[in-house]
Amino acid sequence: MSTIAETSRRGQAHRRMRIDGWRWGGRIFLVFMLLYTALPMAWMLITSIKSGFAAMQFPPQWWPDQPTLASYQKLLDPQNSVGQDFLRFFWNSLYVSAATTVLSVIVAVPAAYAFSRFTFPGRNFLFFTVLLRNMFPAVIFLVPLFILMRAIGLVNTHGSLVLTYLTFGLPLAIWLLKGFYDNIPVQLEQAARIDGATRFQAFILIVMPLSTPGIIATAIYSFIGAWNEYIYAYTFLSKNEQLTLPVGIQRFFSENTTDFPGLMAASFMMSVPVVVLFLVLQRYFVRALTEGAVKH
């Protein structure tokens, strides 16, 4: 009896040590990942509050001797030409991203719903055609799209960007939302239709409210994608007053390559909207991924 108790106790002690080994390994790994992730961002922030002179020193000042918000003031000052440009780029990005987001949701929701609920000839073919868009790099479409946009007179307009962004946001949006709709019991709509709703009313009154998290996730995804897009904006737009942030910033600092504090401040401000948006709504996003993409 005592030997059994002893072996089992020893077994337990042994096991606990093992688990602790894994746990400690995990913690050390997480610390490493935290440093890898956070240090570059921290360095961006620290640099952005240095003066141009303080940034150009070796060895670097780990913390600026004289922290200054001058770079931010310059970027946000509507009186100054740098600030005027930056604010205009910011506004352009916001406008293009918001338009893309609204259109993505309007187009993706019915399509995802149809792919989830209906069986019509060619359904699978069409679904995978839509998904395949994800496979192709922007560059493949660049030349013909450029020519196309020129033909329909959209070069140097934000419309050309919205239309293009729509297509690379749509596939994932449709896929995510379809997974969401797959998980909403079809009986709910059937009940609604028997209760007197048309198919469309059942969709609007019952299904739409239930898929709100999926729609929010889709919206975040489209917004972030559009906000960060570079290559089309770089190619389609040439007029300074129309540039979006990623391209604008690049134009900006290719002229004065040594203003790293200004560049870091601009990078930071460009990141703020999407990071805040994502952090506030991230649970919807993770949930959409779980329900839409993973759980089946």
Binding site: P185, Q187, L188, Q190, A191, A192, R193, I194, D195, G196, A197, T198, I206
Partner: peptide
């Protein structure tokens, strides 16, 4: 359409909204 058939239905999973 279902809505025009003057029927009511109770579902296995209840289908409550």
């Amino acid at each position: 359409d279902p809505k025009d058939r003057d029927i009511a239905m109770v579902f296995q999973n209840y289908a409550l909204y």
